[in-house]
Amino acid sequence: MNVFRIAGDISHLASIFILIHQITITKSVQGISFKTQLLYSIVFITRYLDVTFRWVSLYIFAMKLFFIASSLYIIFLMRNRFRTSEVTKLDTFPIVYLLAGSGVLALIFTYDYSITEVLWAFSLFLESVAILPQLFMLQRTGQAKTLTTHYIFALGLYRALYIPNWFYRYFAEGRFDTLAVFTGIVQTLIYSDFFWVYYNRVMKGLNFELP
């Protein structure tokens, strides 16, 4: 484990705690895309199915269970506890294209035609675009609560930190996971506009507002 990977995973955990904190403190899911959360649940379930039969380490085991459970909990909070219709109105990104596109790409680029490998590839492609409904919603409203932006930033930082981790592992271990690296870079690029606004506004103590 190198420092980039640890920092990335901590950032990922932080993003989830920020989101749950925001929802429970404000008792509202305003500004949060249910569709993005639904996609993350699908990502975690399809990718971490192997938790039931592949042992890597206690760390990986615990993290996988946490990510599956917390994403389902967020879905539950958004659907059953604090659901409002005005949020649904703004959450209009057509995710069926993301799901279908990820499915096709997974079938083309999977390392091996086994169910778990195809699902793994699918989860990578889907994760790379899962934030799009959230960013689309942000675009439509033009502004966001500071906590929401911290959440998106921490989530983006997680994938950004995995890039130096892959460099490190390539040189230290000769390990190179083409699919993970490609989709990880795509995902980080999708965040780049957001990072820019976050850096220029939120980190300077201003509200997140799009020009």
Binding site: D9, V56, I60, F67, W120, Y162, D177
Partner: peptide, 10 residues
């Protein structure tokens, strides 16, 4: 095979 990697990341 360079792509035959163990899935040991999150």
């Amino acid at each position: 095979d360079a792509n035959n990697v163990i899935h040991d990341e999150l």
